Amino acid sequence: MSLNPAMLAIRFLLELIAIASFGVYGWRAFDSPWKFLLVVLLPLIAAALWGTLAVPGDPSRSGEAPVSVPGAVRLVIELAIFFGGAALLWAAGLPKWALISVAVLVLYQALAYDRIAWLVKA
C-alpha cells in the first residue's frame, strides 16, 4: 500500500496537533506548579507511544517498528491519541477547538479508509 503524499502531510499535522493537545490540557487543567511538568510530560508520553509501538512495514513510517504490534493495536493507539487529543481540548475548556478537531479527524479517517483497512488486516 502506498500513501498519498498530501494525506501523509495532513496526517503529520494532525499528529502534531493531537500531541500538542496533551500539553494544552496539562497547562490549562492544573492550577499548580505541576502544570509545568505536565505540559512537557503528557505530550512526551503520547509521542513515545506513537513513535515506539508500530506495525512492521507501515508505509506511513520508515517501515521499521521499534516495538512491533498488530495492526489492530496500532489502530487503537492512533485513534486514542488523535481523538484523545480532542477530548483533552474539551476537558481543558476549549470546546470549539475540540469540536473542530473531531470534525477534521473524522473527515481524515474517512478519507484514509484504505489505511484503516490495512491496519485491521496487518
Rank of each mutant, 00 (worst) to 15 (best):
I77S: 00
W34E: 07
T52I: 08
L3Q: 11
P95R: 13
L49K: 00
Y108A: 08
P95L: 09
F83D: 15
F82S: 03
A91S: 07
V69S: 12
A65V: 09
L105W: 10
W34S: 12
R11W: 07
G85K: 07
A91D: 02
D31N: 11
D114Y: 05
R28M: 05
L105D: 10
L44C: 12
W97H: 05
M7R: 15
V73N: 01
I10A: 14
W97K: 04
R11V: 09
A92T: 04
K35F: 04
L13S: 14
K96I: 08
P66R: 13
R28F: 05
P33D: 06
V40R: 00
V39N: 05
F12C: 06
W97N: 03
D31V: 02
W90E: 10
L42E: 05
R28P: 02
V104G: 08
Y113S: 14
I100K: 02
E64F: 09
P95Y: 10
L107V: 15
F82L: 04
G84M: 01
S21E: 06
T52F: 01
A48S: 12
E64C: 02
A6R: 11
A103V: 05
A92N: 07
I100S: 04
A122H: 13
P59G: 07
Y113A: 15
P43F: 01
N4P: 03
